[in-house]
Design a protein around this nucleic acid. Structure first.
Lengths: 141, 141
DNA sequence: CTATATGCAAATAGTTTGCCTGTTA
DNA sequence: TAACAGGCAAACTATTTGCATATAG
């Protein structure tokens, strides 16, 4: 149900940016909402092919771009490897596990979200990511 | 003088990691200390060629790797483009200007440096980068 | 003399682009 | 029917690798 609401938003959101709603964009968005993790474009591609076997990698990039432009998905850049995409639009931090490579959302009290900058700097986006061991991997040593 | 001290450290630091001191590694380190900015490997390569015309790109990567391994340089990953290298080993944040692309060090009171994580997470590195307009570009609108 | 580092060129990974066809408003 | 989107393959950028030669311990 919640996904349905989101999917209906999609058309308006795209239109607001002069972008057209297409089957591929809707499908990619649906795929992004299905698992609340931080897939790479490659992973989105593989998941998207399950319901739409002919979709191409270039289209996945195009769709993800469109979703980023209309504010439904965020790009996350936690390491030197592939860009990841995050459907959680709440302002939050990321924790990347050095052992399993997984990326976790860290919810943070609003007061802490926007650290002060020296005067003159005008921040628009805070990208805070922490690396280390996630609870699972820390337990397993 | 300050650089000289650093350069002398280099041999021991490398040895401590089982790495050999070479002319190239010393030269790349010297280049890193000359301008306290956040060059990409490509930029380090171009600067390094001035004093050592035959150095190769692969060697620049090797040298930067060696410097990272022995804790004299840090990798900085502020966008989806090339990795940057930072000779400032003090714990600090980064500010990346969306207009000019420049990366600035932001010194932060120690209390703020290591935000708390939910229990179970064991952080080893905090990578905090903020994007927006730097003082110069903000002034120029 | 043996292990490690360099230089070069080729390989790779992630992403973007060009071109032609299909689809949307 | 004009502008935009999709599919495919080729191009591109940043980085890594393999291999022959050079150098450090």
């Amino acid at each position: 149900m919640k996904d349905r609401v989101h999917t209906e938003q999609l058309g308006e959101r795209l239109a607001g940016r002069g972008l057209r709603p297409t089957a591929q964009r809707e499908h990619v968005y649906r795929v992004m909402l299905q698992e609340r993790d931080h897939p790479t474009a490659e992973q989105v591609f593989m998941r998207a092919k399950k319901g739409m076997p002919d979709i191409s990698m270039a289209t996945v990039y195009n769709c993800l771009d469109a979703l980023v432009k209309c504010g439904l998905v965020k790009e996350v850049n936690v390491d030197r490897f592939a860009m990841r995409y995050c459907p959680n639009m709440e302002e939050h931090w990321h924790f990347r596990c050095d052992t399993c490579g997984e990326v976790f959302d860290i919810d943070v009290p609003p007061a802490k979200l926007r650290p002060e900058m020296p005067k003159g700097f005008q921040p628009t986006a805070y990208e805070i990511s922490v690396r280390g061991a996630c609870p699972n991997c820390a337990k397993a040593n």
